[in-house]
Each structure stands twice: as C-alpha cells, then as structure tokens.
Design a protein around this nucleic acid. Structure first.
Length: 402
DNA sequence: CAGGCTACCA
C-alpha cells in the first residue's frame, strides 16, 4: 500500500466500517510506520464525523514516530473539536519531552489555546519558545501572538510584536486594531486605523463597533458611509444597526435594517438579535413579531440569543404567553440567560409565583438570577421574602464569573 | 497536508 492509495481510499471513505478497513490495511501493510501516511490518517480521522474522537486518540497513541503535522492536528482537535485548550497545551509538553521538532504551524494553535484560556503566563512562555525555535518571523505566528496579548489585555506587548514585524500584513493591522477596540482605546484605535496602508472592510467594521460602544454614533455612521462606497458586508450593516440600538436610536436601527434587507444582503441571526432588542426598547411587539417571522423564514429560529431576545421582547410588551411559549419550546437550546430572562419577564408581569417556580427549578443560578429574584420581590413589596432570599444567596453563594 | 483579524442579548 502506498500513501497515494491511502489518500484515495480516505477520499472515498463514507462509513465507519470503511474507515476501520482502511486503518487495518494501513497497519497490515506497515504503511502506518510512515509518518506522512500516519499524518494523513490522523488528519482525516479528527475531521471526519465518521470517527469518534477517542478513536482518533487511540490511533495517535499507537503511532511510533508522529511528525509535527500529526501533533499539530491532534492538538488542534483537542482545542477546536473537544473545546479543551488545556489538554492541547498538556500534549505540547509531551511533544517537547519526546524531542519532536515543532514547525511554523504549531504555535498559532497553541497561542489560540492560551488566548481561549486567557492564560498570559503560558502564552509568554510559548512566545519564548517561538523565538528559541526561530518562528518569530512567521507572520501567522506573529499575528496570533498579537491577538493573544490583546485578549490578555497586554496591549503594550501586542503593540511591540506588531511594531517589530518586519512585514506586517493586513491581518496584523486588523488584529492590533481589534485589540485597541476591545480595550476601548479610541485614541490608539484611530491612530492605527489612520496609519493603515489601506482601509479594509474588517478594520472599518471594527471602528464602527468601537464608535458604537463609545456613543459616537455620527463617527460610526461616517465610517459606515465610507465603507458603503467601497465594499460593505453583512458585518458592516450589523455593526451599524447594533450601534443605533445600543445608543437608543431604535427608529434609525429599524430603518437601517429595512434598508439592509432591501439592498439584498443576507440577513443572519446576529443582526436579527439587535433588531429584536430595538423593538424591545420601544415596546413594539408587532414589529418584533414581524422580525421573528423573518428569522423563522431564514432559518435562524434555533439560535439561543435570538430566543433570549424574543423572551425579553414579548415579556417586556406584556405578551407573557408568547415569551412562555418560546421558553417552553426551547428545550436543550436554552441557556442561563434564557432562564434569567424568563424569570425577569414573569416578575415584570407580576407573576411572582411563576418566577419563583422557575427560580427554584433552575439547573444553575448566577448573580443575575439571584438579583432578578430579589429585586422582583422588593418591587412587589415582598420585603421579607427579598431579605430572606438575600441571606440565602450569601449562604449559598454562586459560581464566580469564569 | 493545516494556521491569524470584524457584527448580537438579560
């Protein structure tokens, strides 16, 4: 069996049984000992829904000399597929212990793991490894480093990596800009934006978001109109709609959304959430209902944030039955926010008992759940209940934010 | 053979 035969077989693999046959052929012919062939196999198995993750792991554990590609693949699978960045970093330690040589694809994955864990210490250590192994000139590595530092709130370090880039590309610029946007640093963000060799949609969208968060609606709109002349995308529209909504300019948000639809841009769940929120603010259940219908038409009804926005909308408009229907039909799609929204909704409508029932049957509560219930009691002049619950909260406690 | 940046909610 040759590697190209293996590749062809994998391309045609459609069933778990096929995969097991291919695997046994690879082992029987001894091809599995070829690191390149093994890497093809692992790459396929981690990406394919046909192969359970633990099965891929078992294959990996039996390989004698996996190459960097294979290690990268299995580390990335832990992060992206298993949502376990910690395990990816643990594997990296094993990787080094086996004296395997990392390549230029190794660090982007690992730095993303550190960013996901907001683990500044580990990331700085990786940065040192990047330099030691000579990958600090790689623009992908640099860009993930910039992003990592930005996520950890270390903009000076992010800036330094950026400044020291021999050849920053458009993603480098966008990443450092996004860092300042996330930090809410208007001055530096504007400086970076102005200093860019050329404007691009992603950078402009970031600026719209930043100005929206800072209440500079006119500035946001100016950027939006600039982008409009070049190339705008769904994100530009969503960012501008959200900017209006956040700054309580709900009419403008709705008008822009209508314009967006008319322009033929696809409507997705994210912009719909902003529009539903705008309807909540102005207590316009009828408009919200239309948007709800549109969401169903474009097939984004199951999106949990949309359900939450709709629960909020209907319960704010006194249409508690509609809110309740969304909650009751939500099933496993619901999250903590859904529960909190439904409890607040009941309380707004004066259904203290329904709120209580839900509160006590919650799978888990956070600080919002407790304070919603406590202030709900207080607003309905159930002062002794409010006080009792407050004391219970202090005894019980709640999990701290992440 | 694969990797980096932008939009939403209580």
């Amino acid at each position: 069996m040759k590697v190209w035969t293996l590749d062809t077989a994998l391309q045609r693999c459609e069933w778990p049984r096929h995969f097991r046959e291919i695997l046994s052929q690879t082992i029987l012919t001894g091809l599995i000992a070829d690191p390149y062939a093994a890497s093809r196999l692992i790459n396929f198995s981690t990406r394919s829904a046909l192969v359970p993750f633990h099965y891929s792991l078992r294959i990996f554990n039996h390989l004698h000399n996996p190459n960097a590609f294979t290690w990268n693949t299995i580390m990335r699978a832990h992060f992206e597929l298993q949502n376990n960045p910690h395990q990816a970093l643990t594997l990296y330690k094993l990787f080094l212990a086996k004296h395997a040589k990392p390549d230029n694809y190794t660090y982007p994955t690992l730095l993303q793991c550190c960013a996901a864990r907001v683990s500044e210490f580990e990331g700085r250590e990786l940065h040192a490894h990047v330099v030691r192994f000579g990958f600090h000139q790689d623009v992908y590595v640099r860009n993930t480093l910039i992003n990592f530092y930005a996520v950890c709130g270390s903009m000076p370090s992010a800036r330094q990596v950026f400044e020291e880039s021999p050849v920053p590309d458009v993603v480098s610029w966008n990443t450092v800009l996004a860092g300042y946007v996330q930090a809410g640093n208007v001055e530096e963000a504007e400086r970076v934006y102005r200093g860019m060799p050329e404007r691009n949609t992603i950078a402009s969208n970031s600026m719209i978001v930043l100005f929206g968060r800072k209440g500079c609606v006119e500035k946001a709109r100016r950027i939006f109109d600039e982008v409009r002349g070049r190339d705008m995308d769904m994100v530009s529209w969503s960012a501008m709609v959200s900017c209006y909504e956040r700054n309580e300019m709900c009419e403008e948000a709705l008008v822009l959304f209508v314009e967006m639809k008319a322009s033929g841009v696809a409507v997705d769940e994210i912009v719909v959430v902003s529009v539903v929120s705008a309807c909540s603010r102005i207590l316009n259940a009828e408009m919200g209902r239309l948007v709800h219908g549109l969401a169903a038409k474009v097939g984004v009804e199951d999106y949990v944030s949309l359900k939450n926005a709709l629960i909020h909308l209907y319960s704010s408009c006194g249409e508690i039955v509609d809110a309740q229907r969304i909650f009751d039909d939500g099933g496993v799609l619901l999250d903590l926010i859904s529960w909190n929204s439904m409890i607040s909704g009941y309380l707004r409508c004066g259904s203290i008992e329904d709120a209580e029932k839900l509160f006590y049957s919650m799978p888990e509560k956070d600080v919002v759940s407790w304070s919603a219930m406590i202030s709900g009691y207080a607003q309905h002049e159930c002062f002794s209940e409010a006080l009792a619950l407050f004391q219970e909260m202090q005894l019980h406690g709640f999990p701290e934010e992440k």
